[in-house]
């Protein structure tokens, strides 16, 4: 597969260029569509019209849109995504710093969701129409219907306010604890590797609630898809034949799962891109301080440069996930050929 794989990767990456180009034009226009101007916010409520115009000129907002876009694009091609007016720091630097923080949260959440969702889905499909299936179907449908931000609040109300098990939803680690040296930027990993066990425990306790929220709500979606895929393969001629030949029930389920896996991996990709938006909102609730919180706060504060960069990174992440999903499917499914 070696040479073919290289060519396929190149093809997918080339395909990404027009896509990101389109995404960047779209976001560029969208954030400038309205009347909210960052200059007004920078200048503050007492500023005169002249002061605002001065600031606009300084930020380059008085020039024509194509001109502004061209400047942004040429800079972006050199890795410079502009400067945030809120923090006065380069956007690239900020995104780079926040990315691992978000990836850690989403990583825990999504891995949990896949395990939880697949187990529930299989359990449901194996006992199709039985009592277990009925109950699980209602539970998953309820899970799919819960908005993530409300789910997060319920978790806080229950595990923090009522039970007092979880730490306050205010960031990634207890204040005052010594932080490990920066290796990956992922706190749990960094502190474990550097031997800061107290910090690691605190970081784990802090990540538990937001990750569990993502796990339960995204997991419900995955469970629903896993059940449908398993019902399909369990009824397929190949599986029925295996059963007729006397294969054990466990073997039958495993075979059906193997056959459903390519479909499931495709679903995981889609679910992941859906979870990105939900994860961003839960970051806001748990004051997580990652990419999501940065982006959402930039959106409500008309911090154009950060919004552009944020959406670009989200687009890249989504594309990367789809690519990984496609490669995995190609690796396990002999029917799929990379072209």
């Amino acid at each position: 597969m070696g040479k073919g794989l290289g060519r396929y990767l190149l093809y997918r990456i080339l395909l990404l260029i027009p896509l990101l180009f389109g995404v960047s034009i779209l976001t560029f226009l969208l954030v400038r569509l309205g009347d909210s101007s960052p200059a007004v916010m920078v200048a503050g409520p007492t500023a005169t019209l002249e002061q605002i115009e001065d600031i606009e000129a300084e930020m380059g907002l008085d020039r024509s849109l194509p001109e502004q876009y061209w400047t942004w694009l040429t800079n972006a091609a050199q890795g410079d995504l502009g400067t945030s007016w809120m923090s006065n720091r380069p956007v690239t630097e900020e995104l780079w710093e926040k990315l691992p923080i978000t990836l850690e949260l989403i990583g825990f959440g999504i891995v949990g969701a896949i395990i939880f969702g697949v187990i529930i889905g299989i359990a449901s499909a194996v006992r199709q129409r039985g009592l277990v299936d009925q109950v699980l179907r209602i539970v998953t449908l309820a899970g799919v219907s819960i908005p993530i931000f409300w789910g997060a609040l319920l978790m806080i109300a229950f595990f923090f306010t009522v039970l007092g098990w979880a730490p306050a939803p205010l960031g990634r680690v207890e204040r005052g604890l010594e932080l490990p040296p920066h290796i990956t930027g992922m706190l749990v990993f960094d502190s474990l590797v550097s031997g800061y066990y107290a910090t690691a425990m605190s970081a784990l306790a802090h990540i538990a609630l937001p990750a569990l929220t993502i796990t339960l709500i995204t997991g419900a979606t995955i469970a629903k898809q896993a059940r449908a895929a398993m019902v399909e393969t369990l009824g397929s001629p190949a599986v029925r034949y295996a059963r007729a030949c006397g294969m054990s029930e466990r073997g039958v389920v495993w075979l059906a799962f193997r056959n459903a896996l390519p479909d499931l991996i495709g679903f995981f990709g889609i679910t992941f891109s859906l979870a990105l938006g939900g994860a961003a909102i839960s970051e806001l609730i748990f004051s997580w301080g990652g990419l999501g919180q940065l982006g959402l706060e930039a959106i409500t504060n008309a911090d154009f440069a950060v919004v552009q960069g944020f959406i670009l990174v989200m687009g890249l992440l989504t594309a990367a996930i789809y690519l990984i999903a496609d490669l995995l499917v190609a690796a396990i499914d002999p029917r799929v050929k990379l072209q």
């Binding site: 954030v31 009347d35 961003a280």
Partner: peptide, 24 residues
């Protein structure tokens, strides 16, 4: 189809947020 690809390339919720925040 290409325009649709672009529209669906990044999380819907975030696109929605950006659009609505930008307009009055």
């Amino acid at each position: 189809l290409r325009v649709m690809d672009v529209l669906q390339a990044f999380p819907a919720l975030i696109l929605a947020l950006a659009v609505v925040a930008a307009s009055q």
